[in-house]
Every structure is written in C-alpha cells, then in structure tokens.
C-alpha cells in the first residue's frame, strides 16, 4: 500500500509541472503586454519599463518560469492587479468557503445517492424504483444554475424559509448545497443501483443466503461494500464536475468563494489572481482523486497492492 501511495505521489510531479507551466504560459501567450495592463492604457513608457524590470519580464522565459515556480512553492502568487493585496491573502478565506460548499454538497450527494440507489436496487421494478430513477434522471438533466434560481424563487422569495444569498449561517447553506449536490446525488444513485444489482447476482451472495444470513444483513454487509467500489470511482470524477459547479452556484447565490473570484479575476484580466486560482483548484482536484484512488484500493482488496 505504501509503495502504491509513494508511486502515485511521484506520478503527481509531472502533472503539477504541467499545470504550473500551463498557467505560467497563459500569462505570456495572451495578447497584450502584462506590464502595460498593470500600468493602465495611458501609462508612460518609463512606468511600463519600471514594472517590467520589477517583475523581471525582460528575462528569458525559462528563468522567469523557474522564479515563478519558486514563488508558487512558497505559496507566493504575487499581488492582485485589482487590489494590490497579496493574492494569497485574498484567496485564503474564499478557498475555505468553496471547500465547505464542496464538502457539504458531496456529503449530500453521497448520502442521498447511496440510500436512493440501494432502495431502488432492492425493490427493482417496483413503484419506488421507478420513482427514484425518474427523479434521478430529472436531477441529472437539470442545469444547476436553473435549479438554484428555482429554489431561490420558491423557498426564499415565495415561502421565505431561507435567505436568498450569502454564506455562513446554517440557513444560508441549505439552498446552495442542494443546488450543487443534486446532480451528484442523481449520478451516485444510478451508479449505486446498477452496481448493487450486479453484486446481488454474484455467487458469494448466494453463498451468504445458503449460510442462513438474513436478507438485510446480506444487503448491508455482504453486498454494499462490494457495490461501493465502482461508486467511489465515480465520486472522484464527480468532484471535478462539482468544482466547476461551484462557479455557477456561487454566482447565483452571491457567495464570496473561489468560483466567483475566478470569474471576477478573469473579467478583470487579473493574471496573478487567475494563476493562483487555477493552480489551487488543480492541486485540490488532483489530491482528491488521489484520495479516491487510495480508498478504492482500500475497498477493493483484490487489486495487487504493489502493482
């Protein structure tokens, strides 16, 4: 197991190099001179020169990249062009807001998805199965910004149960988390159902029945652990969708998170902020997938742990 984790960590190195290189080049390949951008349209040439010197924009590209990399490793992404504050200081708070949103939504997806999937599989072709799968299809095909707007319309504006915007208090959390978690719940429900149906027909389930094990125990002890193996894989993929989903959800509910920050930064061509956001989100995505892969290995004992 340790060898496996080590190998996976080593495999991350080229991935992270790729991300940083891409982000670095982004700045240099976009049309326009960054120094010009920072100084503003009307700035005199000498101001631009000063900025170029300060940022080392006249050095050869590889030198700039190495310097950039050195800064990234120390979590120094430079200062925001809009606020002139260190980007890291701006992001820190927003990052945790988004992480919170993502985690709550994932928990909701997993909780609802797995329970719905099990019920559906155990009662295959009954009314509850058909109803659950219909709702799941609905949840899957609905764009989340639209769902967000609808929820806001009904529950905040019409019924007044939850505040329409913001983040922090428990009541503010409910609508954004439902908005973001629904699609995931639908995917997980469908995956759990099909995986569960496959597992239930396996020989070892028949063995358990022949031992005199009760049906409930068969479902929750013998079948579920095996059925979750493919679900975990989906969970990893789902997390990517979730991260992009936060951008829209934060926009809809006016939440001050990474998603909104990225959009605003792109609009303002605030390169250091965009770079920092992309790198942080990518690193997060890569590590979540690593965790998913490791837990997959943990669940699936059949895989040779060295291989």
């Amino acid at each position: 197991m340790l060898t496996y984790i080590l190998r996976r960590l080593i495999q991350l190195i080229p991935v992270l190099f790729g991300v940083t290189l891409f982000v670095f080049l982004l700045m240099h390949l976009t049309p326009g001179n960054p120094a010009q951008l920072m100084a503003g349209e009307q700035a005199p040439q000498e101001v631009i020169d000063r900025i170029e010197n300060r940022l080392g924009l006249n050095d050869p590209l590889p030198v700039q990249y190495v310097r950039f990399l050195g800064n990234v490793v120390q979590l120094d992404f430079g200062t925001s062009m809009r606020s002139n504050l260190p980007v890291m200081d701006e992001i820190r708070y927003k990052f945790f807001v988004t992480i919170e949103l993502a985690i709550y939504s994932t928990l909701l997806s997993v909780f609802i998805g797995i329970i719905a999937g099990i019920v559906s599989a155990v009662r295959q072709y009954t009314f509850s199965d058909i109803a659950i799968m219909f709702v799941a299809l609905f949840g899957l095909s609905m764009p989340n910004f639209w769902l967000g707007l609808m929820l806001m319309q009904w529950f905040s504006i019409n019924l007044g149960w939850f505040p329409p915007t913001g983040w922090g208090s428990a009541s503010q959390v409910v609508l954004p988390v439902i908005t973001l978690g629904t699609a995931g719940a639908a995917v997980i429900a469908r995956m759990t159902r099909s995986s569960m149906l496959e597992v239930i027909s396996q020989d070892y389930i028949r063995t358990a029945r022949a031992k005199g094990v009760r049906e409930r125990v068969i479902i929750y002890r013998h079948a579920l652990k095996n059925a979750l193996i493919p679900v975990v894989t989906v969970l990893g993929l789902q997390f990517g969708t979730l991260l992009s989903g936060t951008v829209l959800t934060e926009q809809v509910f006016a939440i001050n998170g990474m998603g909104r920050y990225v959009i605003d930064s792109i609009m303002a061509r605030d390169f250091p902020a965009v770079q920092a956001s992309i790198i942080i989100i990518s690193v997060m995505f890569v590590f979540v997938n690593l965790i998913v892969d490791i837990s997959y290995r943990f669940l699936n004992k059949r895989i040779d742990l060295n291989g």
Partner: peptide, 8 residues
Amino acid sequence: PIKGGIFG
C-alpha cells in the same frame, strides 16, 4: 513481465 515497485 510483471510491473511493480515505485516506478512501475
């Protein structure tokens, strides 16, 4: 061949 170890 069987692959293994940290570097596969």
